[in-house]
Design a protein around this nucleic acid. Structure first.
Length: 628
RNA sequence: CGGGAAGUAGUUCAGUUUGGUAGAGCGCUCGCUUUGGGAGCGAGAGGUCGCAGGUUCAAAUCCUGUCUUCCCGACCA
C-alpha cells in the first residue's frame, strides 16, 4: 500500500460544516412584482421566488434554489432508469454535422436546430462561416453510432442507454418559461435489441419506470396513445399532465381510453343499403359557397318531409396543399361531413403514406394560387362528380387530384355536395353508388361526444403538457447509420431501437403548475429545496439563538433546512418569502418561545400547530418522513 | 411566417395626445426607530428614455427607418 493510499484509508469523512441554507447568505432575491413577460403560474412563480432568471428568449439561468430542485428531479429519474438496468452515458451538446447529415436530419430538422461554424468552416471569399456543427436537439444519431462503434454481436444485446442532457431547439416561439424553451434538459434513453421480445420488454420497462417516476414526483401524468411521427415503429405513448395551459390536446373516455387527438381513430357508422335510393339530382343553389348558406338554401328551396337538412347532410370537400420533402406542392381534396372541420395536424400524420410520398410531408390549407392551378376546382362547389363512370376527383379521375375521405363517409351514405359548377349542388349523392375515393384518412377535428374506438364510451377532449414520450423507433436510425450485429446464424441483423424521452425542466414547470396557490409554490417533499423552512422572528436575541440551535439539530438529524436568519427583515416579509419559496413545512420560532413552543405550519393546508421546542426535532423528523 | 401589443432606473410602471432641465412604487445604500403578516422617518446611489437618421432654438414626446421583446395563431417525434 502506497503512502497516499495509507493516508486515504485513515481519512474518515466528517461533516465539518452544517448544510443549512441561511437566507442571509443565500444568493437569492425574491420579487414582489410579477415579471412582465410571465403569463403562466410556473413561469411567474419560479422567477418571483428566485429559482430561475431569463437569459434570452426561451433560455434561463439557474439560481441556487432552482438548481437544487432540478437536481432532485434528475435524481428521481436517474434512480428509476438505473433500476430498470439502463446505463447512464453523456454526449456532447455540441456535435459535428456529419452524423446528422447521414441520418438526413441536418436537412429535415431545418430551422429547428441551432447550427454554427467553427474557425475551419470559414470561407475566404466571402468571409463567412458555413455551419458545420450543431447544438443537438436530440441524440439518436450519437447513441446509435456509439453502439455501432463498440458492439457487433447479438450477444451484446439488448442494452439500454440514457443520458440527462441539455437540448437545443430553435423554437420559433418560445413561451411559458420552462414549458417551451429553446434550451431545456431532457432525459433520453434508447433501447437496442435484436428480437421483438427484447424490444417490447425494454418498452414495457420504460413505461413502468415512467409511471413510478410520476408517482414519486407527485405528478398525475397519464399515458395516452400517441402518433409516432414519421419514423416508423409501432407502439407509441405520450405521458401527458392534464392541465389547461397544455399545448397538446387529447381525448379520454370514462372507460379509460386515452389518446392524443393526432392518434385517435374514428368509429365509422355501418354501411347503408341503397337499392331504393333515388337518383341524385342537381339543383341550382345560388350564392351557397359555404356550408351554412348551403344548408339554408337547401331547407328553403329543396326541403325534405321528415326533418330539416343540417350541415351533417352535406359533404365538404376541402382542398389542401401537401408539401413533399423535396418542396413540391401537390393539391389534394379531403372529403368530410359538412359539420366537421379538418385538422391539418391530424391529416399530416398519415397523408404522406396515403399519397405514396416518402418522408415527412406537411399539409397546409390551399391558397388561391393552388386553386388557380386547378381551374376545375370551383371554390364552394367542389364535389366528387356525378357517377362512378366519370369521377371528377381521385387519382384515376378527369382531374387526377387525389381524393381522400373521412371514414364516416361509408357506402350508402347520402350527401348534398358541390356539382363542380358555380351555384350548382347535387342532392342525394350516394357514396359507393355515385362516387368513390382513393383512400380514407383520419383528419377531422375530434369532438366531445365522439365514440371511443375501443367502445369504452363517449370521448371528452382535454389539454395536457407532454412530459414524456416513449415509442418503438423501429430501424430507421439503425438502417441509415448502418447499425447491424451478427445474429446467432452469423447473419447481419439490423438492430431495432426504442426511444424514451422525459422532459426534466418541463416536469419542474409542470410540478409548479400542479402545486401552487396565490401565495407561491408548494413543492412535493420529494423535490422541495428543503424539508423545513425555519423562520426566526422577534426582537430579542433569544429567538435567533433558539432557532440557530434548532437548525443545527435538524441538520444533524439529516433534514435539509432553509433558515431565515435575516435580522432586520420584518415578519411579514419572512412569512411571505417562506410561502413563495414553497418548502412543505414552515417552522416559526418567535413569540411562543417564552412558553417553550414553536409553530409548525403545513405549507399546503396552512394549518399550524404549536409544538414544544424540546419535542421539535423528533416531531419534524417524523413529519418529514410522513410527507415522503 | 401571419395578427396584436410594447421597448423610460435592478424591477413594475407613469410621462408621449398638446415638444421646454428625467418621474413614482418596490428593491438597493447609510442613520435612527420598529419586529407575528410585505414597518416608520430622514438622507442617498442608480437612466445615452431600444438603435440610427430627420424636423426644431429645443425631442422620451413629432417624422422615417431599423432592431428587439411579449401575447394569439401557424410551426414543433
Amino acid at each position: 500500500m502506497s503512502h497516499c493510499a495509507k493516508q486515504a484509508a485513515r481519512f474518515k469523512p466528517i461533516r465539518l460544516v452544517d448544510m443549512t441554507t441561511r437566507l442571509s447568505q443565500l444568493f437569492l432575491r425574491t420579487l414582489r412584482d410579477n415579471p412582465v413577460d410571465a403569463e403562466v403560474a410556473s413561469h411567474r412563480l419560479l422567477v418571483r421566488a428566485g429559482y430561475i432568471r431569463r437569459a434570452a428568449p426561451g433560455i434561463y439561468s439557474w439560481l441556487p434554489l432552482g438548481l437544487n430542485v432540478l437536481r432532485r428531479i434528475e435524481q428521481v429519474v436517474r434512480e428509476e432508469m438505473d433500476a430498470i438496468g439502463a446505463q447512464e452515458v453523456h454526449f456532447p451538446a455540441l456535435l459535428p454535422k456529419e452524423p446528422y447529415e447521414a441520418s438526413g436530419r441536418w436537412k429535415t430538422y431545418g430551422d429547428g436546430i441551432f447550427v454554427l461554424g467553427d474557425r475551419k468552416s470559414e470561407e475566404v471569399e466571402p468571409r463567412v462561416r458555413r455551419p458545420n456543427y450543431l447544438l443537438a436537439p436530440t441524440h439518436e444519431e450519437m447513441f446509435t453510432l456509439l453502439v455501432k462503434d463498440l458492439y457487433s454481436s447479438y450477444k451484446d444485446l439488448p442494452v439500454n442507454l440514457y443520458q440527462i442532457q441539455t437540448k437545443y431547439r430553435d423554437e420559433a416561439r418560445p413561451r411559458a418559461g420552462l414549458l417551451r424553451g429553446r434550451e431545456f434538459i431532457m432525459k433520453d434513453s434508447y433501447s437496442f435489441a435484436v428480437t421483438d421480445e427484447d424490444q417490447q420488454a425494454a418498452y414495457a420497462a420504460h413505461r413502468a419506470a415512467y409511471i413510478r417516476i410520476f408517482e414519486r414526483l407527485g405528478l398525475p401524468a397519464v399515458p395516452v396513445a400517441a402518433d409516432n411521427g414519421n419514423m416508423g415503429g409501432s407502439a407509441s405513448e405520450e405521458f401527458l399532465f392534464p392541465c389547461e395551459i397544455g399545448e397538446d390536446t387529447f381525448v379520454e373516455s370514462d372507460g379509460g381510453y386515452r389518446a392524443n387527438v393526432e392518434a385517435v381513430t374514428s368509429v365509422p357508422p355501418e354501411p347503408v343499403e341503397y337499392d331504393d335510393a333515388p337518383a341524385a339530382v342537381v339543383h341550382h343553389t345560388p350564392g351557397t359557397d359555404t356550408i351554412e348558406t348551403l344548408v339554408d338554401a337547401a331547407n328553403a328551396d329543396h326541403g325534405r318531409q321528415d326533418r330539416a337538412w343540417t350541415a351533417a347532410d352535406t359533404l365538404k370537400n376541402v382542398v389542401v396543399a401537401v408539401v413533399t420533402p423535396e418542396g413540391e406542392r401537390r393539391v389534394a381534396v379531403i372529403a368530410v361531413p359538412g359539420d366537421r372541420e379538418v385538422d391539418l395536424k391530424r391529416a399530416d400524420a398519415t397523408i404522406g403514406a396515403k399519397l405514396g410520398v416518402a418522408g415527412e410531408v406537411s399539409v397546409e390549407a390551399a391558397e388561391a394560387a393552388d386553386l388557380a392551378k386547378n381551374p376545375g376546382l370551383v371554390r364552394g362547389y367542389i364535389g366528387p362528380g356525378l357517377s362512378l363512370e366519370a369521377p371528377y376527383l381521385g387519382a384515376e379521375s378527369a382531374t387526377g387530384i387525389p381524393y381522400l375521405a373521412d371514414p364516416r363517409i361509408v357506402s350508402g351514405s347520402r350527401w348534398i355536395t358541390g356539382a363542380n359548377a358555380q351555384d350548382q349542388h347535387v342532392f342525394g349523392l350516394v357514396a359507393g353508388r355515385d362516387f368513390t375515393w382513393d383512400d380514407t384518412i383520419e383528419s377531422v377535428v375530434v369532438r366531445d361526444g365522439d365514440p371511443a374506438p375501443d367502445g369504452s364510451g363517449p370521448l371528452t377532449t382535454r389539454r395536457g403538457i407532454e412530459l414524456g414520450h416513449i415509442f418503438m423507433l423501429g430501424r430507421y436510425f439503425s438502417e441509415v447509420l448502418d447499425l447491424k450485429v451478427l445474429d446467432e446464424n452469423g447473419k447481419q441483423s439490423t438492430v431495432a431501437m426504442g426511444s424514451y424521452g422525459f422532459g426534466v425542466t418541463r416536469a419542474m414547470a409542470a410540478l409548479v403548475e400542479a402545486n401552487h396557490d396565490d401565495k407561491g409554490i408548494i413543492w412535493p417533499s420529494t423535490v422541495a429545496p428543503a424539508d423545513v423552512h425555519l423562520v426566526a422572528t422577534g426582537k430579542g436575541s433569544e429567538v435567533y439563538e433558539a432557532a440557530e440551535k434548532l437548525a443545527s439539530e435538524l441538520d444533524s438529524a439529516g433534514l435539509k433546512v432553509i433558515y431565515d436568519d435575516r435580522p432586520k427583515v420584518s415578519p411579514g416579509v419572512k412569512f411571505g418569502d417562506a410561502e413563495l419559496l414553497g418548502v412543505p413545512t414552515i417552522v416559526v420560532v418567535g413569540r411562543g418561545l417564552s412558553e417553550g413552543k414553536i409553530e409548525v405550519k403545513d405549507r399546503r393546508s396552512g394549518e399550524a400547530q404549536n409544538v414544544a421546542l424540546d419535542d421539535a426535532v423528533p416531531h419534524l423528523i417524523e413529519r418529514a418522513a410522513s410527507l415522503l
